[in-house]
Amino acid sequence: MIAIEGLSKSFETARRSSHTALADISLNVAAGEFVSILGPSGCGKSTLLYIVGGFVPPTEGTVAVNGKPVTGPGPDRGPVFQEFALFPWKTVLGNVMYGLLERGMARSKAEERARALIGLVHLKGYEHFYPKELSGGMKQRVAIARTLAYGPSILLMDEPFGALDAHTRTGLQNELLDIWERDRKTVLFVTHSVEEAVFLSDRVVVLTRSPGRIKQTVAIGLSRPRRRAQLLVDRRYQTLVVDIERLMDAPEEAP
C-alpha cells in the first residue's frame, strides 16, 4: 500500500549548512495495517509523515502509494495534525463538509454525510459551534471527522493526541480504535508515547535521534479488538512496552 524507498531529508539551516532530519528510511506498510512511527522529539518522524502526505518533498528516495509515486497531496491520504488545523471561520459542520464539497458532492448530500460523521465522533449537537468554542479533545474529534469524511484510504496521524491531557488522550485512543475496527483503514501514526504506540499498532517503527534512521521495527502481536483494561494487566503488553522503552534509551550505534 505504502512503499517508502531510501528516503532522506535535509534542511537548509540559517547558517547555510544543511541539517539531515531523516536518513535512508525504507518501509512498507500493507493495506489495513496500523503502523506507528515512534521516536524522540526532533528525530524527524513528523517530517516522514509530511513527505508521505506530499506536503514536503524528500531530498532523496521515493514514496509510492498503491504503486503510484507521491508528487503532492491527494485525497487518498488524509492528514490529522496535532494542531487540529481546523478552519476557524467555519463551524463544526462547515469544517467536516469542506472536503466533501471539494470532492464535488452536492451540498445536501454532503451535509447528511457530515452530520453522520459528527455523530460518529460523539459531537451531535455541536454542529453550529465554531472551533474556538470547543475543548482540545472536541477539536481533534472534528479534525478526525473532517478527514474521515472524504474517505481517504490512508490516515496520516501526526501526534494527534499530543496536545491533549492524559484523560482525554486515552478516551480518544479508545474511540480511534473503535472507528478503525469498522473499516480498518491503513494508518501511519506518529507519536513519542510508547504506550500509545503499543496499544494502537500492529507494528511499531522506532527511529533514532537526529538524523532519524530506522532503529528497529517491532511487531505487536496482541489480539484485536483490544480493550485497555485487559491490556494493562496483560504480561505481553507490559513486556512490549518495557522492551521498546529500553530500545529507545539504548545508546545509538555509529552509522
Partner: peptide, 10 residues
C-alpha cells in the same frame, strides 16, 4: 497545516 488540510482534499 491549515493549507495542507485543504490540499489533502484535492
Amino acid at each position: 497545516k491549515l493549507v495542507w488540510s485543504a490540499l489533502a482534499t484535492g
